[in-house]
Amino acid sequence: MWAILRIIIGSIFLVSGLGKLLSPYQNFLYVVQAYQLLPSWGEVLTAQVFPWIELLVGFLVLTGLWTSWGLRGALILFGVFVVVLGQALIRGLQLESCGCFGSWVHLKPQTVIIMDSASLLLTCALLCKISQAKKFSLDAFFD
């Protein structure tokens, strides 16, 4: 069960990163700008770099290569999502879609913050059960 959960969490990041990377970066820049949280240079940097981080974390967690580092990365990313979405909801920003999955899936921020909070807890649980989470992983193959 823990290995399946690990694969699901990894797939979420992999799909999310791919969705953004295969679309022109300007689309994700528009999403980042909607959160009104960063200076202009920070928005451009985030739009260019963040999808690659999601892809890398997703790949590590999905395949179970350096699983514990991948899960720590996932934990940080979910934490960032919860904070960013939370501040947007508190400030009453008008976001039609969270922009989390590029142009592939449109979800309301209220829905996503619940999903992200649940995923954050699941990732914590996976880190606690790391030996079981490493089943069917590249770590299990190499170690």
């Binding site: 022109p24 300007q26 689309n27 820049l29 528009y30 700008q33």
Partner: peptide, 15 residues
């Protein structure tokens, strides 16, 4: 993927 999207002298600009 979203509107408004502009092409200014061919360069894509969103928002």
């Amino acid at each position: 993927a979203s509107t408004p999207t502009y092409f200014i002298n061919g360069k894509m600009v969103v928002g």
